[in-house]
Structures are given as C-alpha cells and as structure tokens.
Amino acid sequence: MISFPNAKINIGLNVVEKRPDGYHNLETIFYPVKLADALEFVEANNTALSISGIQVDGDPENNLIIKAYRLLRRDFQLPELHFHLHKVVPFGAGLGGGSSDAAFALKMLNKHFNLKLNDQTLERYAAGLGADCPFFIRNKPTYAHGIGDQFEPIELDLSEYSIVILKPAFSVSTVEAYRNITPERPDFDLRKIASLPVEEWRRVIKNDFETSVFPKYPQIRELKNQLYDLGALYAAMSGSGSAVFGIFRHLPTDLANSLPKGIFIYR
C-alpha cells in the first residue's frame, strides 16, 4: 500500500503566552500543501524502515513511522511490516514532514487492516506522536491553538494561487527559535483570515518566530524579502523555519535564476 504524506505551512504564528509547565500557547493556521513524501509498506519477516531521497538523521527505529506502527500494534494484531519512505519534504523546515509521515502511516494501517477507527480516534493516536500530528489525519485548513494541539476547522481556499516554498541548506532548531520569544497577544484574530484578501495579509498576519530567527539567520529574512520582490502577495517563514513560502497570483517566470544557489525550491 502506498500514500503520499504532504507538508503543511503555517499562515501566521502567534506565541501568546508561556504556560506554567514551560510550554507556550500559540495560535496558527495549518494549511496543507502539495509537496509530499511517498510512503509504502509490505508484509515482511521483521518490521523495519528504509529511506531514500533526502537523507534523514537519526536511527530509523526511532522514526515516527515506526512509532506509529507500534502504537497501533499495542491494541491490534498487526503483522511484521517493512516500510519504505521516499523523503521529499525537508526536515527541520517547519513543514511538518515527520508528523505527516506518522499520521499517514496511521491512516494507511487503519485502512489496509480494516481497523475501523474513525478520524477522532486516529487523532487521539496521532496526539501521542506529536502536537501537530493530528492535523494530518483530516488534512484540511485548520486553526490551531493551545500548544498547537487544539484544532478548529476554518474555511480557507488558496487553490487559485500558487505557493512557492524555499528551503536553505540548513535547519533551525525549534528550541532555539523559542529562546528569544516574548509572548504577546496579536491584534488580528487568525480565525477571521478567510474574510481578509490575501493582498492584505502582509499588514496584519505575522510569524512571531521571525523576530528570534532572522537576527541569527539573516539568509532566511533575505529569502522572504526576495519572494516579495518576485511578486508574492504574502510571504513568511513556516513554523520555526528554516523554510519560507510565498503566495503568488502568478508565478515568476525565472524563479530559479532569481535566487541564490543552494536554495531548494518547491512549488
């Protein structure tokens, strides 16, 4: 069985307060995009994960795909499986690639083995793997709050636009991104985003992590500025970076030659 776990972007990201447990409450819009990995599994003598495409750091045994499989195997009689992941979505980019792989693994196993789990139950399993994993179960535009684990569906359709994602050759640590954040509540309510033309987003929608990441990684700020120079209606860093995205009504004709070498381009 094969599926294509897609990435997401964060449209707006407000860090609103620090919690007593040390985590932060935030508000953001998760929006699914077409950039996707490929994930498949077959029955095997031993459960394992092989990976092609982008090189992934860490032991495959600790990959979220294997953790998702083991989570379901505690409650269901699943056979030994060999998973193969062709990695396209870059990690350490704020695009949710690992979380998407795990959520799609849950959905694939549920469907293939007829476990009859509804979306709400799958979301509970996914929540045990990561705060944003449950988003990829329904995989629709969502307003997220809390620590990014509480969801409300929103009506937002960007299908008439083109989304370009740029990823420099380095990643940004989420812990590092939080280090210099000063929580504050925004003036604009992200739940009203659908009522605001994309051309006006730049004025009121921001990613708080840019204030802590850009001073240390000015290359990311420059990529955002270049997207605006190329005609983006709105551009921002996704999550805690290092990827940035631009929303275009019309794609620039000479995008690749307009950017520094070593930048990965997805559209």
Results as ranks from 00 to 15, higher is better:
N118V: 08
K116N: 14
K116T: 12
C133R: 01
A105Q: 02
N110S: 13
A103P: 08
C133N: 04
L106M: 07
K111Q: 14
G97V: 00
F104N: 01
E123M: 15
A103M: 05
L117V: 08
A105S: 14
L106A: 02
N118Q: 11
A102G: 02
A131L: 07
K111I: 12
N118F: 12
A127S: 14
S100A: 08
Y125Q: 02
M108F: 12
S99W: 07
L109Q: 04
R124E: 15
T121V: 13
K111E: 10
F113V: 06
M108P: 08
G98S: 00
G130A: 07
K107Y: 04
L117Q: 08
G130F: 13
Q120R: 15
N114R: 14
P134K: 08
L122I: 09
L129T: 00
S100N: 06
S100C: 07
F113Y: 15
K116R: 11
D132L: 01
M108A: 12
L115K: 05
L115M: 10
A102V: 03
K107N: 12
F104R: 00
T121D: 13
S100F: 11
D101F: 00
A126R: 02
A102R: 00
T121P: 04
K116D: 14
C133I: 06
A102P: 01
H112P: 00
G128T: 08
N114D: 13
A126M: 08
A103Q: 04
N114Q: 14
K116V: 11
S99A: 11
D101A: 03
H112Y: 13
F104C: 02
P134F: 11
S99V: 04
A105P: 05
Q120T: 13
K111L: 12
A103K: 02
R124W: 09
D132P: 02
Y125H: 05
G97H: 00
S99D: 03
S100T: 07
C133S: 07
H112F: 12
L106E: 05
L106N: 03
G98V: 04
N114S: 13
K111C: 10
L109I: 08
D132F: 01
R124L: 15
E123K: 15
L106F: 10
K107D: 10
M108S: 10
G128A: 11
R124G: 12
A131R: 07
A127L: 15
R124K: 15
L106P: 09
S99Q: 03
A126L: 07
C133P: 00
A127D: 09
A131G: 01
P134G: 03
L117S: 13
L109R: 02
D101I: 00
C133M: 06
S100L: 04
Y125K: 03
E123N: 09
R124Q: 15
L122A: 05
S100V: 06
D119W: 13
T121L: 13
S99C: 04
Q120H: 14
E123A: 15
P134L: 11
L122T: 06
H112K: 15
F104P: 01
K111F: 11
A103E: 04
K107P: 09
E123F: 05
P134S: 08
K116I: 11
K111M: 11
G97K: 00
L122G: 01
N110Y: 10
L117G: 12
L117H: 11
H112C: 10
C133T: 10
F113W: 09
N114I: 14
G98P: 02
